[in-house]
Simulated scan of single mutants.
Amino acid sequence: MTTTLMISDLHLHPGAPDVAEGFVGWLETRARGADAVYILGDLFEAWIGDDLLDHADQDPSGNAQLAIRVAGALRQLTDDGTALYLMHGNRDFLLGHRFADAIGAKLLSDPAVLRLGDEQVLLMHGDTLCTRDEAYQAFRTQARNPAWQEQILAMPLADRLQLAAALRQQSGEATSNKAEDIMDVTPEEVVRVMRDHGVTTLIHGHTHRPAVHELEVDDQPARRIVLGDWQPGHGWEVEIDASGEPKLRDITY
């Protein structure tokens, strides 16, 4: 049976070992035998460069050890024949081709269009849909600048680890002071993006608000499927079987 699975927002980090082990278990059981797995951003809570895979002995934070553990489980999945696709999130935007090659994955652009049967489906991380969060959008523009990324990746590993910790703290403080609607998608932007890509189905993560939203795009019925984030004991996936119909599922592990 043809099966495609989509997940996002695992935010893996050493402080949440239950989520990491739950994800590895999901790869070894639920994802085993799937035709394709799509990770739509924020696999890691932070990513400071693909060379992290080389420095398990220089990283007291445990990020390198976690990266190696997860990379090994993902590589096993692709070695067993499952196609793996990886999209950048707002937390792990420095994931590069070296990491993708190491796990046998293909890096996806954001947005990306996927054909499911007779339908074109739009895949996004979802952060660009939150246009009312102007401060974040300004940071995103800076963080996706190749020159800025090159400058960051040239820093010593210890300095990058400190920077990642500082950015996480700043992000948490900023989020606590923002109104709920600012951190959610802008409905007009959703319609515009779907119209521009000629789709009636959009699947994304980022907002941590799992749901299926019915809407209209140019008087045509449409839907927006939002993946949730992973927490200890449970996560979220979209399953697409041979029928081509996406199903949002709350999963336990």
Rank of each mutant, 00 (worst) to 15 (best):
W47V: 10
D110K: 11
Q137P: 04
D196H: 05
T4K: 03
S176V: 04
M183N: 05
A36S: 15
D118I: 15
Q151Y: 03
D59Y: 07
L84A: 05
M6I: 13
Q149D: 01
Q137H: 04
R132V: 10
F99H: 04
L10S: 08
E134P: 10
Q151C: 08
L248V: 06
V212R: 13
N90K: 03
P232W: 03
M87I: 14
D159E: 12
G198R: 02
V190F: 00
M194C: 14
R168P: 01
Q58K: 12
D80V: 09
S8H: 02
A56K: 03
G104K: 04
D18L: 10
H11E: 11
M1D: 09
A135I: 11
L153S: 08
D59C: 05
F44C: 00
N145Y: 01
L53T: 09
A102M: 04
R98C: 06
S61T: 15
A102W: 00
D80G: 15
T2G: 01
L248R: 02
D181K: 05
S8G: 11
L123Q: 05
Q142C: 06
R30H: 11
A46W: 06
V238D: 08
P14G: 13
Q162C: 11
G198C: 14
T131D: 06
V212L: 12
L108V: 09
F93C: 01
H206C: 03
I39Q: 02
L123N: 02
A16N: 09
V190A: 14
D250S: 15
L10K: 08
H11T: 05
D50M: 10
S61F: 04
E134Q: 12
A166W: 01
E21T: 13
L52V: 13
R192D: 12
G49N: 04
A31I: 04
C130G: 03
S176H: 09
K247H: 15
